[in-house]
Simulated scan of single mutants.
Amino acid sequence: MREKISLLYLCTGNSCRSQMAEGWTHALKSDEIEVYSAGIETHGLNPNAVKVMAEAGVDITGQKSQHIDEFKDTKIDYVVTVCNHAHETCPWFPADCKVVHVGFDDPPKLSAPDASEEVKLDGFRRVRDEIKTFVETLPRFLAEEK
């Protein structure tokens, strides 16, 4: 049996994109990947991310918003940055890891602040589905990035 790879999804606040990616990876790839998520800041779980993941049958309520510093002593094979800001401004990455950037739109920024709840959720759903499509390519995608 092959050893699992360890993967950390990183975004700015660890509230939406990285949380959805962690949830999808748990749901779809837990036999191959030990997954974590973190941010360069912590903003807590976004309730709309929780809601749209639940619609897809993935419960992320047990996950928490974590800071990258919490992983200083964790062996990480890959860091996947899921937003440009984290990719460009992360103060450090775990030693000996491969950093791969796969950017996704920030769901809260996909609609106007005064948009209806349904319009706001549609942005979250689109990004959720894009992240699922990406996770389905793992770990093959990571091997190709070497």
Rank of each mutant, 00 (worst) to 15 (best):
M53T: 02
A54I: 04
H67N: 07
E41H: 15
S111I: 15
G13L: 00
H101P: 15
I40M: 12
K4M: 09
D73A: 09
N46D: 14
I68W: 06
P94H: 04
S18G: 04
V100Y: 02
A27G: 10
Q66D: 13
I5P: 02
A112H: 15
D122N: 14
T74C: 04
E118S: 08
P139V: 11
R17Q: 00
C83W: 07
P108F: 08
V80S: 12
V100N: 06
E22Q: 11
I5K: 00
T61W: 05
A54F: 04
S116A: 12
S37L: 07
K146N: 13
T81L: 13
S6R: 02
F71E: 06
P113F: 14
Q19S: 03
P107T: 10
L121R: 10
I5F: 04
I5M: 02
K120W: 01
V52T: 10
R17A: 01
R17Y: 00
R17H: 03
P107G: 06
W92S: 10
E144K: 13
P91F: 03
E88Y: 09
S30L: 00
I131A: 08
P107N: 09
S116K: 09
R128Y: 06
V135W: 09
G103H: 08
P94N: 01
T133W: 08
E34C: 04
Y78A: 03
E55K: 00
D129K: 03
N84D: 14
S65P: 08
L7D: 07
V100K: 00
D105M: 11
V52D: 02
V52A: 00
T61H: 09
K120A: 08
T61E: 10
G39E: 08
S6Q: 00
E130D: 08
V102S: 11
V82Q: 12
E22F: 04
T133K: 14
N48Q: 01
E70C: 08
L110I: 13
F141R: 11
K51F: 05
H101G: 12
M1C: 07
H67G: 06
D31T: 05
H87L: 10
K120N: 04
T137N: 02
Q19T: 01
T42C: 06
T42G: 06
K75I: 15
V99L: 05
A112F: 14
E130A: 01
Q19L: 07
